[in-house]
């Protein structure tokens, strides 16, 4: 049974709307959804072409929003984000660690940078044009010793162990895994800022506290990204099996 029997052959749904839907809809549903829309469009066009066009665009917009959201949350897009964002953060964090290790004159970054460093806020260097202008020169001064810190390694080890447990239990969703992983990576740095704020430390004591926080971030970004990548691969396999 078809819902509609007659059709004016010269009336077609808006081509642009079809184009938008063809781009956004999953491949296996394009044919069925466009067919359903055209079938209903033809019935409505018998009464009023203007209203049929309006209805078609309304359906297109609502449907596009649904599938655009799904596309943005798709495994491929999330996979790319989960690779590039931690990679960028890793390189920038490494730059901050080198800066913390070699900096003799904080005024080189900005006039207020020394005060901000005393509060543990090394990330404020990211708002300085001088930091970005000399970023690769700073990074070139990196030495292995700057990146090895026992306390940070220990904290990171426990955080990553927690993440692995969470991943292996298979109960955490991708979202929960990502939130937990990246929160665990950032918490030591946030803790270092709060710790410094609530205690009066001498200037020479602040460096190691900040280093602990920021090195934890550096150590944890790659494994967290990898665990989330594994979860994404798992979801991709499940999705592929469903499509098959």
């Amino acid at each position: 049974m078809s819902l509609y029997s007659d059709k004016k052959p010269d009336i077609k749904p808006p081509a642009l709307a079809n184009r938008v839907l063809s781009v956004l809809l999953p491949h296996r549903l394009v044919e069925s959804i466009l067919g359903d829309l055209e079938e209903e469009f033809n019935l409505r066009a018998k009464q009023s072409i203007k209203h049929a066009n309006q209805w078609y665009w309304q359906q297109t917009l609502e449907t596009s929003m649904i599938y655009l959201q799904k596309k943005l949350a798709s495994v491929d897009v999330l996979g790319r984000l989960n690779f590039y964002l931690p990679l960028i953060m890793f390189v920038v964090t490494a730059g901050l660690i080198v800066l913390l290790s070699i900096l003799n004159d904080p005024a080189f970054i900005s006039e207020t940078f020394w005060d901000e460093l005393l509060q543990g806020k090394i990330h404020t260097a990211l708002f300085s044009a001088h930091f970005w202008h000399n970023f690769w020169d700073i990074l070139a001064l990196a030495e292995w010793g700057m990146f090895i810190h026992f306390e940070s390694l220990l904290i990171s080890f426990f955080s990553i162990a927690m993440m692995i447990c969470l991943y292996k239990q298979q109960q955490a969703s991708l979202f929960e895994l990502a939130i937990s992983g990246y929160s665990l990576a950032f918490i030591p740095y946030l803790w270092s800022i709060m710790h410094i704020e609530h205690h009066s430390f001498e200037a020479k004591q602040i460096g190691p506290i900040v280093a602990t926080g920021i090195l934890c971030l550096l150590y944890q970004l790659p494994p967290v990204s990898y665990i989330i990548h594994r979860k994404l691969q798992q979801l991709k396999t499940e999705h592929f099996e469903f499509q098959q």
Partner: peptide
């Protein structure tokens, strides 16, 4: 799709987008 959408609109007044 089209038949289900129309039945829901007529019988229970749920006029949903085909995508939904």
């Amino acid at each position: 799709g089209a038949a289900i959408r129309q039945l829901l609109a007529e019988q229970v007044n749920r006029n949903v987008a085909i995508g939904a």
